[in-house]
Design a protein around this nucleic acid. Sequence first.
DNA 1: CTTGACCTTGACGCAGCGTCAGGGCCGCAC
DNA 2: GTGCGGCCCTGACGCTGCGTCAAGGTCAAG
Lengths: 258, 258
Amino acid sequence: MLTIGQLAAYAGVTQRTVRHYHQIGLLPEPGRDASGYRSYDARAVVDLIRIRTLAEAGVPLARVRELLDADPDEFATAVAEIDQRLRAEIRQLQEHRRRIARLADGDSLAVGPEVAAYLDRLRAAGASDAMVEGERDGWILMSARWPERIPELMADKLAQLEDPRTLRLYRLFDELVELGMDEERLEAAADLMAEVMEESAARGELDRQHDELDDDAYVALMDAFATDAHPMVERLQELLAERGWSGWIRVERAAPGS
Amino acid sequence: MLTIGQLAAYAGVTQRTVRHYHQIGLLPEPGRDASGYRSYDARAVVDLIRIRTLAEAGVPLARVRELLDADPDEFATAVAEIDQRLRAEIRQLQEHRRRIARLADGDSLAVGPEVAAYLDRLRAAGASDAMVEGERDGWILMSARWPERIPELMADKLAQLEDPRTLRLYRLFDELVELGMDEERLEAAADLMAEVMEESAARGELDRQHDELDDDAYVALMDAFATDAHPMVERLQELLAERGWSGWIRVERAAPGS
DNA sequence: CTTGACCTTGACGCAGCGTCAGGGCCGCAC
DNA sequence: GTGCGGCCCTGACGCTGCGTCAAGGTCAAG
């Protein structure tokens, strides 16, 4: 008769594994010797090896008994099913590999390729890391709510980058962040924005934007996000209000105020 | 501000997932509103989406924070490492598929190809299912203790199958099982075995067997297994003892006794 | 005032064991 | 006799990433 350690060694598993199989009823508890030790016979060795063989082939323990007792037909069916499952798991892992491969290059972390391309352009144009990160987060938010509109919006943004005034504006922003907020730059930035927006409005872009970003609460959320990012946003909104514009994420004409 | 349900919906995860991330400290617990509800801002949406993006790419949650805070170099290193792990898991699963594929055809359940071939031959020679199963279990036991000797032993066994007396013996066994034990068949089987073993001994095979199966306790275990399998084994051992042989798994010459 | 849809915490479940913790039993050397 | 190393015992938590009740507050609408 064998002790659990000998049994486990013959079958090439650990003692813990044997006890686990007892616990889940896969292998029957054997009798005990005088001192309470489990005492196995050869039958147990055979059973355990057959169990281990299936388990090592990826058969879930819950199905092992079923397979051991199956006739050839049932066995084949069950095996085919398990192979299906294994294939699905492999596909899943391969999908994971594809995704981390995409993550490995660039900012495509959580944003689509269009946004990643835009962010790369921004960086190439000299925007600071902080600025790019802020833009990235903004577009993550945008993608979360209106994923289908991202390609179009990004095309617009890329086109805007061709305008030297846009670049000047971003440079002003970076300077406001890095050198502190001074009135002169704030006014300059507000003037620039007002000018660009006027043209944008003339082309009807702002109306389109209003139609597309049709979720006031979410726009408010994004506005708050921008405001939280840096105090200059709030100041610029005030200055823009004086120039007849309200909003940030979704800009609209407003009554010119104090 | 958002409730947990809205946050989860924007990020494409379940509320349970968000709470889980709070629990493990991956996403900070937000403030609560008057009635104790969690109240999220846009920052949380961004954070959650970035976490989810990594998690869906197969990054273990325990490493997500590390990756989110990593600079590009660290990020690349970590990603490479995770990809390694994914590849290893895929290899593992593919190994599983190979194994169940092998299981799918034939008795290679827990025995090597040589034994499987032998069992197929046995079946083809007309042995009953019960007999084949018994042989299979016996060889499982043998493989567990002396895996490296299996090819040689199986070659011998296959050769023995060429001897018509061996087939006659197996047929006698099957009849003893199916029709009940009668003295006539038992004597015939014992005579046949004694005859064959005499020749085997003359060729020196029994000495070799004795050297190879050099583990008395294990041999005793296998003997007990055979004895448990069917009462005829015990009777046959008695008859063989009268003819000067002892043992079953490992046969040896003994003092001929009553 | 009642629904139904949301939110709260707490806790078990899953898969397959690994790994202590705390404690007997056994045989051998001193 | 006793100490020591090596076996065995049960019980229980840990890991991974949530799913899924359970039992109970909250809120807006009818």
